[in-house]
Simulated scan of single mutants.
Amino acid sequence: MIKLCLVDDHELLLRGLAAIIETQRDFEVIKTCTSGQDIIDFLGTKPSIDILVLDVNLPNSDPEDLLSKIRATHPELPVIYLTILRGSRLFHRLQKFGFHGYLFKDATYEEVFEAIRTVAGGGTYYAKNIELDFSKDQSIHQNGYITKNSGVILSKREKEILTLICQEYSSAQIAAKLFISVSTVDTHRQNIMIKLGVSNTVGLVKYAISYNLIEN
């Protein structure tokens, strides 16, 4: 029996994933967690689990800080990272923490099952489409904007927000200009920073200028 802990902040998705996984006779979901603190607390009880399936983009939780804490107490625990972010930069950022699996949230059930069994058997499993093919002459790909050198995909909305950030607009001003909420702006800002691998606004601006992510 392969014992799993699942971590995702969306309860509906979490419950659905647990239910799907437990349709397989050799899988057992021992615990589900909805936050970074939940998983840290649970791992502190020294549970007997075989694999941790972890959403890397949890609210109020820096992914690298969370992963470093997990590795501090469970350096050998097999981890399958789960993400909606398709850029390869996040993949490379997380490599230093070690992982055995990396899946996108639009993976098929069969791919999830295959990943779990592969990792449980001591192997590694990466999403079938993890290697994105970027054309050097292409400026738009998969409905998102990319740079010629960085391989980072930004949605149209993310590109708009990044441009306004670089023009020194505050979150409140961006929200008013784009007719969205401040919390939505902040969520986009966080996702952009994760995609670009930076930790603050200065880093965003430097990266945007270096890779020509914005016009003017």
Rank of each mutant, 00 (worst) to 15 (best):
Y211C: 01
L77W: 14
A72W: 02
V56H: 09
K3P: 00
H74A: 14
E76T: 14
L213W: 03
P47A: 13
L103H: 03
L164N: 02
L52N: 07
I39E: 06
I161E: 05
A19P: 00
N143F: 11
K159F: 00
L178C: 04
S181M: 09
I70H: 06
A19H: 09
Q173K: 14
K96P: 02
E158F: 00
E114N: 11
I70E: 07
I174A: 06
I116P: 00
N60A: 15
A172R: 14
S88I: 11
V112T: 13
A127Y: 07
A107L: 03
G101Q: 11
H188K: 03
L58M: 02
S199C: 02
P63S: 12
F179L: 11
I49W: 08
G121A: 04
K206Q: 13
G123I: 13
V7Y: 11
E131C: 01
L204F: 06
T45K: 15
I21R: 01
G44W: 03
N200G: 09
K148W: 05
L154G: 08
R189G: 01
V53G: 04
C33A: 15
K46C: 12
S183L: 09
E76H: 11
I51R: 04
I180Y: 04
F179M: 10
D41C: 05
L12D: 06
Q173F: 01
T32N: 03
I194L: 15
G203N: 05
I194T: 04
R89C: 00
I51C: 05
R15F: 10
L14S: 07
N191C: 03
E160Y: 03
L4M: 10
G203T: 06
